[in-house]
Design a binder for these strands. Structure first.
Lengths: 149, 149
DNA sequence: ATAAGACCTGAAGTTTGGTTAAGGTCAAAG
DNA sequence: CTTTGACCTTAACCAAACTTCAGGTCTTAT
């Protein structure tokens, strides 16, 4: 039989199809469902059937994870979407704006760390009291009182 | 009694002292020792005594962790130091140079992600086939064949 | 009709980086 | 000399994010 375009577009996806298309393991999809990140309906025989929108949700999840957002927080953000619909462009704008701050912070942290590391590679200062890298961790004098070399 | 400078400098540190100076919990120090990241000798009564150099090792560990290096890998790097001595400026130079690549990569990844995110915030393109963010995950067409809005 | 392959559930296991608890010892001050 | 606080060990526990396993069901192609 030949499928019409409409058939193909609206066909519900099985868990295996979602796994293949999204690049996420079946077990992970089960897991996400348990955690409330995605939803499915069931076939007559109790098998999961996904709306195509789930692909968008999974894409959002994966991007958020790359940013470093924990699943629990992603779940919250997705749960705030009214009536469980999938994120639209508007929703996505809101979510990504919210998470951008997190990303900026992490990039900043790492960049500062890199700068400090560059200083230290040049001077071997990890052993020196004033080192910017070391100091945050050992603000008390390392060598005890009195002069030394 | 008064301590001479030499007494003070060469005094072995207890685990509590190392914890306080390094900002790492006693339990974490025990843990690091079990994993081979640090070493201690024992007092007559079987209590740990640390050489002051342990502070430098712990500082290295903490920096490496910020970079995102797993403990196992940090352990390997520290283990490569001949005869278990503490990292010198030279060693530190080598280690940090090695880890800088990792750091650069991570900064790069995140920066690219941010750029892509910025694009997407502007266009809401997470739903569009060509999206740079989405594509890596769903390189097959999302909507199936045929035309659609 | 039947066999293969996809799917189901719940429970347990995995990794990383530790912390907490339980039961006992050590060290130093009064 | 006794008590308090630091220390010891082993084992169990924690969180995140999954995977794996065991035992059973569905779907689909032949």
């Amino acid at each position: 039989m030949t499928l019409t375009c409409a058939d193909d577009i609206h066909k519900a996806l099985t868990v295996g199809e979602v796994a293949e298309r999204s690049g996420v393991a079946v077990s992970a999809l089960h897991f996400y469902e348990k955690k409330g990140l995605i939803q499915s309906s069931r076939s007559a025989g109790n098998q999961r059937r996904y709306h195509r929108d789930v692909l968008r949700r999974v894409a959002v999840i994966k991007v958020a994870q790359r940013i470093g957002i924990p699943l629990a927080e992603i779940a919250e953000a997705l749960a705030e979407l009214p009536d469980g619909r999938s994120p639209t462009a508007r929703d996505w704008k809101r979510m990504s704006a919210k998470w951008r701050g997190h990303l900026d912070e992490r990039i900043n942290d790492l960049t500062m760390l890199r700068d400090q590391l560059n200083e230290c590679i040049g001077c071997g200062c990890l052993s020196i009291k004033a080192c910017r890298l070391r100091n945050p961790f050992d603000s008390l004098s390392e060598e005890g009182p009195g002069p030394h070399f």
